[in-house]
Design a binder for these strands. Structure first.
Lengths: 322, 322
DNA sequence: ATCCGTGGTGCAATCGTTTGCAGAAGCGTG
DNA sequence: CACGCTTCTGCAAACGATTGCACCACGGAT
């Protein structure tokens, strides 16, 4: 403890405070120099015990190996850091048991707020936090009645549909992702509605649910290619699924774009550098993370915040256009 | 505090302990039931204040958006969780300033141990922890004189070289990644040595350093393709770099494998499902994470641990063989 | 009947901070 | 010179847990 060094007692605490109110400038300097000298670090945990705030924000994600979530988490961490908070992240694998135990662990650390990135239909995390009075925000996936920062997925699906319709595609397939995640649901819904409105409703056999990773895309894509009349275009609700679908198209001996066009979602960095660059619906992942922190901070200080829908943009590339 | 509920005082602490020694079975049950009823959670922070252990392991990585690191972190988190520890992860962006501040923040939380995944030549984190007496382990990248769990990168580079030599390639390029990371250095070194030994030393103009991401691979690949006599094969020290190189090869109007063969490193999931599946040197990322936790735990309990070199394996795919 | 051992419980100190309150200077003013 | 005011500093009580030690009652042995 730096104090015992040779300075006075707990006046040091004040001297090290951000404002250092009620302490002479001279003392402040002396204390700070000594602290630096001795390599003193105030114990955030102990301080939190007294103040009641851990200055810790918990982040729940399905998996960090999903680049999309990793990107969002990165921006959350940066934004939280700028506001003086640290973050803890937990993989829940879209599984109720994991979610429970990870959330429990966070609450045991007296987390100040939670950002939920893995919201799932019928999942109770948001409700539980609401009941406990712990501030929280949903990001990426939404849930009726809870504050959320997401992209306008319905509209994103529609953009993809309009793009393909414009290129003349009439028999199309959708790889829809997890049936209980709002992202998959809304993107699919927006896409189907647009085709319906244009007079080309999509048969249910052409809409296949899947995991959100490459593996899931490969499996679902293979299924689509095995249909008696395979689609001339596929909409994958995220880029990794699209990557898997690419594999399926190749395995089926078809050529990308010429035989089967492909649209992904999120526009991750590597979409543009692939051997055949991927057409994708771009969402501002970093912005989403930043806004979610901002909303959470507002909630934490008692003021209210509004849900946000970020507008998506379609980026046409070689998997759909020459 | 659950204790005031109607039970006795701090005997509750003992009753809630893992062993519950020195408490009657009856009391234990009563306390536990009541705790569950009241939704009581022991405050890990407060407990840590007393016990001196935060049961927290810090993990330093360059970036989580690098799937390789995200995969390692996931397995670290699982292994740590199994041993009763939580983890905190921090992006350091391979930048000294970030490293300092993130490590500081961790030390302020009285971290029990650190896993360093972003070791960099001339970086001081490992030395500092050593001086402070905080247990630590390096993972993925090594540093002379410090405990580390890595793959045998030198050998991995040699495997890639032997594969290409066997296919008849004589004029090859290397995209070497960061010059200060042991991974890039050793993989490149192993590769060059093997070509040298075979009688085809690689000219320095054919070895280009880069960032570890797709963007870096694209830039370096473009540079290689602009050489008067472009290489007939490229070794990229990781898969993302290879992905970028694919883009560069395409942009140069060359065909993958036929004109330019390509070998990546790490064999991430999507390497196999790409439109043109990528030949890659496989490393056991999950195993690496697990072993690093094991080694760290050993260090934390005072016993010593040995550095590990995991053996890599080359997985041939369409970017090199028909 | 006394004594000892033992299992169960309570007391109180402690971990490193923060913070309301009181006390001690220093200084200007009436 | 005394008084009040303003600064600055120290005291001590929290925050929520853990844990060595003392204490109690009870049963069995002598």
């Amino acid at each position: 403890m730096a104090r015992h060094a040779q300075v006075h007692i707990s006046t040091a605490s004040r001297a090290l405070g951000d404002d250092a109110a009620g302490v002479s400038a001279e003392t402040v300097q002396r204390v700070r120099e000594l602290a630096a000298m001795l390599g003193y670090r105030r114990d955030v945990g102990a301080a939190g015990l007294r103040t009641g705030s851990s200055r810790l924000i918990g982040v729940l994600v399905p998996r960090l190996t999903d680049i999309v979530l990793a990107t969002i988490y990165e921006s959350i961490d940066v934004a939280a850091g700028a506001a003086g908070y640290s973050t803890v992240v937990a993989n829940t694998l879209d599984d109720a048991t994991h979610r429970r135990s990870r959330l429990d662990a966070m609450l045991s650390r007296r987390i100040d707020g939670v950002i939920i990135g893995d919201s799932h239909l019928g999942d109770t995390a948001a409700f539980e936090l609401q009941k406990l009075g712990v501030p929280y925000v949903l990001v990426m996936r939404k849930l009726e009645g809870h504050l959320s920062i997401t992209t306008d997925d319905h509209r994103g699906g529609r953009l993809a549909a309009e793009h393909l319709l414009g290129l003349g595609h009439r028999r199309v397939g959708v790889i829809a992702g997890d049936l209980l995640a709002s992202t998959g649901i809304e993107r699919t819904e927006g896409f189907r509605r647009a085709f319906e409105a244009a007079g080309y409703p999509i048969d249910d056999r052409y809409v296949i649910s899947s995991g959100f990773d490459t593996r899931g895309g490969l499996a679902a894509g293979t299924q689509l290619m095995k249909l008696a009349e395979p689609p001339t275009a596929i909409f994958a609700v995220n880029d990794f699924i699209a990557l898997g679908a690419m594999g399926a198209i190749r395995d089926a001996g078809r050529k990308l774009r010429e035989d089967v066009a492909l649209v992904g979602y999120n526009d991750i960095d590597l979409a543009a550098t692939l051997p055949v660059p991927l057409t994708s619906v771009r969402s501002e992942l970093g912005e989403m993370g930043r806004l979610s922190v901002q909303a959470l901070l507002q909630r934490m200080e008692g003021s209210s915040a509004e849900s946000v829908l970020l507008p998506p943009v379609l980026v046409p590339r070689a998997t759909t256009v020459g």
